[in-house]
Design a protein around this nucleic acid. Structure first.
Length: 110
DNA sequence: AGCCTGACTCAAA
DNA sequence: CTTTGAGCCAGGC
């Protein structure tokens, strides 16, 4: 469907992230051709209607490697970290993805 | 049209 | 290393 909202496009991108890999908010923004829209991507994730396997917003982390928020409160962030770990993404106890550049993923060129 | 929000980011201190 | 402040953007009012 042409003319999809920025949010919908963001969901489409993150749905392609393989398990065990992540993208940063800024990465998603760039993938959509809006390099400066990282914050807007965050808003999209916040409004994600279907967190979990269908629209894996837990695979989106901050540029500095920290996990970032997930589903509301700080408890959500903990879940996000566990979720990532269960998928094989190494996360330190202080909530940082180890070797971000190694697990960082980029969609194939459109 | 302007104003406000916020799962962000980066440079500076 | 941490904290701050300013810049950023799409969407909803």
């Amino acid at each position: 469907m042409p003319n999809e909202s920025f949010y919908e496009q963001a969901y489409q991108v993150i749905r392609r992230i393989p398990q065990g890999r992540v993208m940063t908010y800024a990465d998603v923004a760039s993938a959509l051709g809006r390099p400066g829209a990282a914050r807007a991507v965050g808003t999209a994730m916040r409004l994600n209607p279907n967190p979990g396997t269908h629209t894996p917003c837990h695979r989106i982390v901050k540029s500095d490697g920290r996990a970032g928020h997930y589903m509301g409160g700080p408890d959500g962030t903990r879940r996000k970290i566990e979720f990532l770990r269960s998928e094989g993404v190494p996360v330190t106890d202080d909530g940082r993805v180890q070797d971000l550049d190694r697990v960082r993923w980029a969609p194939a060129r459109a």
